[in-house]
Design a binder for these strands. Sequence first.
DNA 1: CTAAACGATGACGTAACGTCAATGTCAAGG
DNA 2: CCTTGACATTGACGTTACGTCATCGTTTAG
Lengths: 253, 253
Amino acid sequence: MTTEPRYTIRQLAALAGISPRALRHYDAIGLLRPARNPANGYRLYRREDVLRLQQILFLRELGLSLEAIQTALDRPDFDLLHALEEQRQALRERQARLARLIQTVERTILHLKGETTMSDNELFAGFSEEQQARYEQEIEQRFGDRQLNESRQRWGSYSLEQKRRIMEEGGAIYRDMVAAMPYGPASPQAQACVARWHQHLRYFYEPTTEILLGLADGYNDDPRFAAFFQRLHPDLAPFMRSAIRIYCQQAGE
Amino acid sequence: MTTEPRYTIRQLAALAGISPRALRHYDAIGLLRPARNPANGYRLYRREDVLRLQQILFLRELGLSLEAIQTALDRPDFDLLHALEEQRQALRERQARLARLIQTVERTILHLKGETTMSDNELFAGFSEEQQARYEQEIEQRFGDRQLNESRQRWGSYSLEQKRRIMEEGGAIYRDMVAAMPYGPASPQAQACVARWHQHLRYFYEPTTEILLGLADGYNDDPRFAAFFQRLHPDLAPFMRSAIRIYCQQAGE
DNA sequence: CTAAACGATGACGTAACGTCAATGTCAAGG
DNA sequence: CCTTGACATTGACGTTACGTCATCGTTTAG
C-alpha cells in the first residue's frame, strides 16, 4: 500500500515553489479546492490535489490564464491542442514585438552614447503606422530628400573617432546655448553659439540661410526635435529660433 | 508667428492614438497636467503638453512604467541612458524566457499530435531548476539509466511512419483501457489491454515483470505520469495498477 | 429649442496575487 | 499550566494602466 500524502498549505507551497497565498487564491476562485480538517478548518492537500496543482502549474508556465486553466481542467472536452496553438501564436507575436522594442531601445542607447547617428524614422520605428505616416510627411515637407541623403553621405565618410567628437561638440553647443540664455538671443554669447552651431552643421551638409531658418522652426514645431530640446531646457527651442533669426538677418546684411 | 495649438482631450487623444481616459489618467497621477478652461473646467492641451505626451509615449513604447517615466521627465538629473540599459537587460530576459516558453509549447503541441516522443525532462524544461532536480532524482530511482538509453536507442531506429503508428497504438490502448474499466481489472477486456500494453512496450525495450510492476506504481505516484493518466480518466492509473498486478501474477504462474 | 455629442468627476472592475490585520490553533519549553 | 512562536483562518486593501459605466453639466448642429 502506498501511503497517502497529506500536506498543510505551507508544506505544499514549499513543495511546489509557490506561496501559500497563491494556494488560497486558487481555492478562492475554485481552481484547486482541497479538503478541510473539520476540527480546525485547515486545508488538507491530498494526492489528487497535488496532481491537479502539477497540471495547473504546468499550464501556467505555458502562459495560460488561471481562467483558461480552469476550463481546461474541468471540461474533459476542452481542446487543449487548439488552445496551445493559439497560445503559441500569441507568444510569437509578443516575441516579435519584444524584438522590435529591444532594437529600438538599443538604437536609442547608441544614439545617446553618440556612437551612431539615427534617423528620426528609426528612432520612432516602434510606433504605429499611422503616426509614422504623419512624421514622414512632415519631414518630407521640411527638408527635401536630397539634403537628407547628402547629410548621410557626408556623415558616413567620417571615422568613428571623428563622429564621437562631432557629437560631443553638438552637445557642448546646446549646453553653451542654454548658458547664454540669460543674456538674450541677440547677445554676443548667444550669437557666438549660433555661429558654432552653423559651423557644426557643415559636418553634415552646406546649410543655406533658408535651411537655418527652417531648422529654427523645426526645433520648435517638430515634436521630435522639440522633445529633444525640451530635455535640455524648456525655453531653449524658442530661444534658439530668436537667436538664429537674428544671426541670419545679420549675415544677410 | 506660429499659432499655438489648443486641443481638447478628445482631439489630442485622436492625434496621439490613445484614449481620452488615458489622458485623464495621466492627469490624475500628475504625469501630464494640462491647463484648464476656467469657464467650464475643460482640459486644454497646448504645445508643451503635446511635446510631453510625445516623450511619455515614446518611453512607454520602450516598456517603461508610468512611474519611471514620471521621474525620468521630472528630474533633469535622471540617468536615461542607465535606465534604458537596465530596460534593455530586462527586455532581453523576458525575450529569453519567452523563447523557452515557445519551445516548450511547441514540443507539447507535437507531443499531443503524437508526431514525436518527448522525454519528461523536455516536457518540464520550462520549470524551475529546483523542481527539475527533484524529478531527475525520481526518474533515476525508478528506472536505471540503462533502460532509458536502451529505450531511446530502439526508438531512434524506427522510421517516422513507424513512430507515428506506435504512438497511435499507445493512445488506442489507453482509450480501450478506459473503455474496459466498467468490467473490472480482472476482466478479459482489461487483461487483453494489458497484454497489448505489454507488447507495446517492447517497441522500446524488453520489460521484465519487475519493470511492469514498477511502471504500474509510477503511473500512480509519479506526478507527471499521473497527470497524463488523469487527463484520460481520473481512475485510470489505479485501475491500470490493479490490472497490471493481476496480469503479472498470472504470467508468473 | 432640442438632441446629440462632448466634457467633467467618481466609482468599480481587471489578473494574480502581496501584504497587512485581527484572530484562532498547535507544538514545545519552563 | 502557561507562554511563546510558528502556523492557520478570513477579510480587506494595494498593485498597473487604464476600460467601462453612471451621473451630471456644456457645447454644438439642425
